[in-house]
Design a protein around this nucleic acid. Structure first.
Lengths: 242, 242
DNA sequence: GTAGGGTATGACCTAAGGGGAGAGTCAAGA
DNA sequence: TCTTGACTCTCCCCTTAGGTCATACCCTAC
């Protein structure tokens, strides 16, 4: 026990055997023992090191840099983490831009589809149709006739949902393994208030569902990612004590 | 005019000449003309195609897939965009998890540093010190003595700033080139209110600065990214009309 | 004792280019 | 007209982080 074969370790960490071979060869992760038949055996220490490696890999560090980092005892972890955080936030912003562009394009697209599919509204009485179109045109300009409001409203809702998701995600992260539990509770309470204000008091069904979900989240949403996060945390602590 | 050499196009699109050579070779982006000396010359159509390519590349599509996509006339752009959006949001969530883990680690780290640097508080009179510690311990649990509140408050603020940044980023994206301008204005107004509520009425200096920045953002924050976004939009429109 | 699965090593392959060599091309200034 | 410097061509090898064989050994269970 406490001895993992290549395959076991690979499955545990979610990488391929080949990857472990490579990491061995480049000296990034050596097995603790080699059997007489040259089988690789890894211990708990190697497991933790692998978790760290994967952490940095997730941040797009080249393996060579990871090697340097993990083998430099005077390495400033705190500063490095700050750096990673900045890099990640920058990446997130890039993603935001892209998502924005996509949403914009989708609005245009849907608009166009609506226009092209004008014959879909053939069933509507002529005069009613004209009145509606006039109103819509006055509101959102010529060309964008129907669906503009709906599209925007759905975008709006989606945006809010995304933000709520963000918030809950960060809360979940903060929750797991945090020493200051009561502080987090307060934090959640504050967030609830914010969300209530976000929804403007009038909580619509789908928003309510979100609130409900958020209440359950820290119990329900225990995913592999969380395990990974915990592992990383453990690994980092271990690294710090050493 | 309307004819770009490799270098010009490369600079315009922010890629290397080598990349264009490669794209030519694999048939992803052929120059419109080859001079007698076999120099590559690209027209506006190729420029737009390149923008599309870069868009998909940003989404981590392999070049081969991009080729298929761009050359398939029956390609469902709308569906693809929905897919990309989902992928991007998933990626964002992964990043959130990572950022959360980092922040958590940083809190632990800072805590530890504080504990280790306990002798920094040698100057404080013994009885005052004891009282403070008792209070702090009661509030946040044993072990996490000082700095807990500060750390959390700064994390909190950072979180809010991040969210505001998210919101402004999406707004900026929505702003640029949107037909329903007035709707967006309303949207902004609503967002302002939300932010005012987020800040709880008591708007502190750094938050105020954020609000100010947000007011200017759609004028000030015109970055290469935005140009890229506009280009993509244009390209997509062009694609749709064709 | 043999079948089925795990393992080791080595060799070749991949994507998306980077970098350089050697040679041709172009435009501007002396 | 000649030259110089910038630009371009094709060809070839190199890179990262592995994937995918091929061949051979190892181990355990029936």
């Amino acid at each position: 026990m406490d001895n993992y074969s290549v395959k076991k370790l690979a499955q545990l960490a979610g990488v391929s055997v080949r990857t472990l071979h490579l990491y061995d060869k480049i000296g990034l992760l050596k097995p603790s023992v080699r059997t007489e038949a040259r089988y690789r055996l890894y211990g708990k220490k190697e497991l933790l090191r692998l978790q760290q490696i994967l952490f940095y890999r997730e941040l797009d560090f080249p393996l060579k840099d990871i090697l340097d980092i993990l083998d430099d005892p005077a390495f400033d972890l705190e500063q490095a983490l700050e750096g990673h955080k900045k890099a990640l936030l920058a990446r997130k912003e890039r993603i935001n831009t892209l998502v924005g562009t996509i949403e914009k394009t989708l609005v245009t697209l849907k608009n166009k589809t609506m226009l092209q599919a004008e014959d879909l509204y053939q069933g509507i009485p002529k005069e009613k149709m004209a009145a509606y179109r006039k109103e819509a045109a006055a509101k959102w300009g010529e060309g964008s006739v129907l669906a503009m409001e709906d599209t925007f409203r759905s975008l709006e809702i989606e945006a809010i949902q995304t933000e709520l998701k963000d918030i809950t995600a960060r809360l979940t992260a903060l929750m797991s393994g945090d020493p200051a539990g009561s502080e987090v509770q307060q934090c959640i309470a504050r967030r609830y208030q914010i969300i209530l204000q976000l929804t403007g008091g009038k909580v619509e069904p789908h928003k309510l569902e979100y609130l409900r979900k958020m209440g359950e989240l820290h119990e329900v949403d225990v995913l592999p990612d969380r395990e990974l996060a915990l592992f990383i945390r453990e690994a980092t602590d271990h690294y710090l004590k050493k």
